[in-house]
Write a protein that binds this DNA or RNA. Structure first.
Lengths: 152, 152
DNA sequence: TTACATGCAAACCCTTTGCAATCGT
DNA sequence: ACGATTGCAAAGGGTTTGCATGTAA
């Protein structure tokens, strides 16, 4: 990932401006969450992010991670997903383009996709049901039909 | 609801056959959950169903409601929805046709809709990502633009 | 200096589990 | 009678909260 560093720097600048604008403080913990969230290649939940950071000798608590992720979501630097009734998953959002997810019923691997028809459906349903639709969550669940899935 | 009684009777027959087939026992508690789930006009969560039933002098525990709802989902007589990170919502499924949901950001009212393009998207993405898609969850979130919404 | 942020542990909420008592079959 | 089902309360897992301590501004 040659340009990931730049992305992280960019994210930190945006975050700094956001903190300033809202009178929040710039703490080392908050910036470290950006570093480590943006270091992930996959969606990650709070507990795994916490363990990951502990493992890297960071001194941070779960509470602070929760708090910081909320801030990151608020300023658009992170996206939160709730795929099932378990823990929420987060991913970086600076280079994010909206996509939806396909979750394998057996191995629970997550694949991403995007379909332009979703926008059309949103517009149409929004008009029909008199709602200004602000976001959506779409998850497909299915059985992999390829060998890379661990269900065979 | 003139024919709701018939629907409940029909549901009970299906449930009875399901219980028999699987060697499960026919208990008054299990049937009472059908009665009261099917009496709802809206989605309901376990706790509210429990309180509703307690209020009607039923003698039933939360654990049994959880257990029975699982069975009802298993045999197709109920559908379970997970709209947010809070409690799951259930609805009767005998007269159910698949639909998706629009949740108001402010008043949290739920509206239903259905769009045939979803099937097309499912088929296409399933082929593309090599998955036998078995189900999906689609929720739109938006701000009502009508006065019936409590957000004005 | 003085709030706000942190870290810890306890509290919370929804759901699941363990087990003795009950009840279908 | 046997074993599944119930009800209760305790345990579980993820998230939030309260409060003393630490720290940015």
């Amino acid at each position: 990932m040659p340009q990931r560093k730049n992305i992280i720097e960019q994210a930190k600048e945006i975050f700094g401006a956001f903190l300033l604008k809202n009178g929040y403080r710039k703490t080392a913990e908050r910036y470290s969450v950006i570093d480590e969230l943006y270091a992930q290649d996959e969606h990650i939940d709070v507990d795994n992010l916490y363990l990951w950071m502990k493992n890297k000798e960071y001194s941070i608590s779960r509470a602070t991670i929760y708090n910081t992720l909320d801030l990151l979501v608020e300023c658009g630097l992170a996206v939160k997903h709730q795929f099932n009734d378990r823990s929420a998953l987060y991913e970086q959002a600076l280079t994010y383009r909206h996509h939806d997810h396909l979750v394998c019923n057996i191995c629970h691997k997550i694949k991403e996709f995007s379909d332009p028809r979703m926008e059309e459906i949103k517009n149409m349903i929004g008009t029909e049901l008199k709602s200004q639709i602000t976001s959506h969550s779409l998850v497909f669940y299915g059985d992999c039909t390829i060998d890379s899935c661990e269900n065979k």
